[in-house]
Design a protein around this nucleic acid. Structure first.
Lengths: 202, 202
DNA sequence: CGACTTCTGTAACGATCTTTCCACTATATA
DNA sequence: TATATAGTGGAAAGATCGTTACAGAAGTCG
């Protein structure tokens, strides 16, 4: 019954995601979203209801296609001791690529946190949950890295790692070198031999 | 000669600053700036040339009235050993106030870093310089706190402190508790007895 | 007091924004 | 093949944006 959809939803959302990533929600205009997706307004509104609906879909896509694949090794049952180190190295490499979305624009959700859209409770909740997801993953990686460390020490390392990563995301647009520096500091913290409780692995 | 200005420029800029702080540059409308400042468009454009000119003035005001007074104790010739601790405590208290500008909106410049306006080179430079200013001040505070520490250790503490503060600013709008937690972690790092090189003071 | 300079308010301009409406087309089922 | 369903495209509505032009009010100096 009826004509089937003529476009790939995931691909359209991916294209919109890129626009929101670079421009932010408020400054991403519908004509620009039309151009990026190749769809007319009518189709976009028919499929997603509103610009906001498309943005929500873009955030979903961002989490499942960008954030979580990178976080996955930190969330498996037996986390590798080097998993956190590897995460940071991979992220650093991604941010270092000159014209990549991440290097140029940081993180869609971190950027959203500082935007007026963050005054929306639903959006705030999503960003907050994202940060918690990051922190949880880092804590698991830190625990795998230093099995002998106390819970308080794991928490502290997870907090600082989260902060260094968030700062890298927040700053890469205005100072890519500073962002890379933050990740280098995170790597140094993760790799350092703990003077009291643990021992260096790699 | 001629009629003197009928309003206090600093006060007008301060009012505009609050609007930009909460709404961001792009979402702060001229009618809203009129309402907040009590001036008509004509006067605003006459005095500041453009919305962007008013924003630049607001950033100046933000740096001199909000940022630098708080940073000042870290930049005097003989920095007190507790200066960094005091800075973090004061900032924490400011972010904890429920309806304060800082607690509600974080930092004008951090928010700007993730906005489309950050693609403007001049704006990016200002935000980058702001981050460097923070980091420099924190390094001085860290050195005063742990005089025996190596330069590398000072650098690392300054980096992590900067990241924790930036993250607190970036996240307070969506998760005030997480922001306060980041500052608590920074306080713990600053106050901890260094296992190798230094000794606790406070 | 008069002339000059500057500030202020109203109005409007042109552009752009998100959203909606309606006719058209294309596909799948009966 | 006929009919129903749903995707698509063009146009326009309604609102708001930043900016500018112009006329009048207000204060200072000669």
């Amino acid at each position: 019954m009826g004509r089937p959809q003529g476009f790939d939803t995931e691909q359209v959302v991916r294209a919109a995601r890129t626009v929101f990533w670079r421009q932010g929600y408020e400054s991403a205009s519908v004509p620009e979203l039309e151009r990026a997706t190749g769809l007319a307004r009518s189709s976009l509104y028919h499929a997603f209801g509103s610009k906001r609906g498309l943005f929500d879909a873009a955030v979903d896509s961002y989490l499942t296609e960008v954030v979580r694949p990178r976080l996955a090794p930190l969330l498996v049952e037996d986390v590798a001791p080097t998993a956190l180190h590897d995460y940071l190295t991979g992220l650093r490499a991604a941010l270092a690529v000159p014209r990549s979305p991440a290097g140029e624009n940081g993180c869609l959700l971190v950027n959203t946190a500082g935007s007026p859209l963050a005054l929306d409770a639903a959006v705030a909740e999503r960003v907050s949950a994202y940060r918690a997801e990051l922190r949880h993953a880092f804590a698991r990686g830190a625990a795998a890295r230093n099995p002998a460390a106390s819970a308080a020490e794991i928490d502290r390392l997870a907090d600082t790692c989260t902060a260094l990563v968030v700062t890298a995301f927040a700053m890469t647009r205005v100072d890519n070198a500073a962002a890379l520096g933050a990740l280098d500091t995170a790597l140094a913290l993760v790799d350092e031999t703990d003077g009291r409780d643990g021992a260096a692995i790699s």
